[in-house]
């Protein structure tokens, strides 16, 4: 014992940490939308593809959801150079998170496809909706309402996952906490402050997602669980 927590020194680094949080946010958003895109392709193949392509997608999803993202990125970062592919830490993390997200987001989006009810489509057809109108007025609103809560949830998980980038030397929020730690040795103060920043940014994200979900998609998301 005998250790007193002193935050004054660490607080000087707050702007530096907050800039790091922007980089975390950047990684989370890029990887999320990258994952959405690849996940959508995978989900489409899974829904409409033949037996062989189905199996490939299933293997991909099973592999990525059953192994740690950290080790996947290690693999990209350290093993790919053996094949002459050198990735910068930032790109390796971004790529790893995107590939990983694609597997989860494929499953989530596929569940959305499967939730479209045939009778709603039939009703739309009897009302003489064109295909575009069916998609616009029936399919999309329905899918978004079903998909929005699990997607939001996964986005928050991914925001937390970006802290892994620090291990590879990316100077996002956790990476910057590492830097300050080796400079000041005020470890508990730094990591508690960093934790607080993560709590704040995920709260802001949940709040915004809840507002967007409620007003655009009539999807209910609780801000505090």
């Amino acid at each position: 014992m005998g250790y007193t927590l002193v935050y004054t020194q660490v607080l000087e680094f707050l702007p530096y940490l907050i800039k790091g949080a922007w980089i975390s946010l950047q990684i989370a958003i890029l990887a999320f939308f990258g994952g959405m895109f690849f996940g959508l392709i995978l989900a489409t193949i899974r829904t409409f593809g033949n037996k062989v392509s189905n199996k490939i997608v299933i293997c991909y999803v099973t592999f990525f959801t059953n192994t740690p993202q950290l080790v996947q990125i290690y693999f990209l970062f350290f093993a790919l150079p053996e094949f002459g592919i050198l990735l910068s830490p930032y790109i390796a993390v971004l790529l790893g998170m995107t590939l990983n997200a694609a597997a989860y987001l494929c499953e989530i989006q596929r569940a959305g496809f499967l939730s479209i009810r045939q009778n709603e489509l039939d009703a739309a057809k009897t009302l003489n909706f064109s295909l575009v109108q069916q998609v616009k007025y029936v399919i999309l609103p329905h899918i978004m309402r079903v998909l929005f809560p699990p997607l939001s949830n996964h986005y928050i998980i991914m925001t937390l996952g970006t802290s892994m980038a620090a291990i590879f030397g990316v100077e996002e929020l956790t990476g910057r906490a590492f830097n300050i730690n080796s400079e000041t040795f005020r470890s508990v103060e730094i990591f508690s402050l960093t934790a607080l920043i993560y709590i704040v940014i995920t709260f802001i994200a949940t709040f915004l997602l809840a507002v967007i979900g409620r007003y655009f998609f009539k999807a209910k998301i609780r801000i505090i669980q």
Binding site: M1, Y3, I156, L160, G161, T162, S163, M164, A166, I167, T174, A177, S187, V188, F191, S192, T194, A195, Y198, I199, T202, F203, I224, Q225
Partner: peptide, 25 residues
């Protein structure tokens, strides 16, 4: 409690506890 630990990355919690344990020995 649940809000905090579901909003802090596992890595950060781990390091925080690691250093806290170092202090309280």
């Amino acid at each position: 409690y649940t809000e905090i630990f579901r909003r802090v990355p596992f890595l950060v919690s781990l390091l925080l506890f690691f250093y806290v344990f170092q202090i309280i020995k």
